[in-house]
Amino acid sequence: MSIDLLIALITGAALFGVGIYGALSQTNLVMIMMGVELILAGAMVNLVAFWRYLHPDNPAGQMFVLIIMTVMAIEMAVGFGVAIARFRAKGSVEMEEAVELKG
């Protein structure tokens, strides 16, 4: 059990924990999205660590990380589009006020 792998996995776990704290505790949509970015970053670190220390010859690990980066970009784009629409309709993107489906 290599120390390098353990360090990388603990970093991934810490980023995941901070991301969950952020995504659950923040009231603003943009801050929630930042928490989600941290969660995905934790997952990416774990993937790269697994690729590097367990199967370095298989490029499918790097492929997975590329797809996660793509997903991060897409999720941010659509999320900010929704945030703009919500801001135009209601004047704020606070999630505490977003309790109704109407409007």
Binding site: A13, F16, G17, Y21, S25
Partner: peptide
């Protein structure tokens, strides 16, 4: 709640 959830998930992953 969110602090608890963050710490629990960190400990589980570790």
């Amino acid at each position: 709640l969110s602090l608890l959830a963050g710490i629990v998930s960190f400990l589980a992953a570790v």
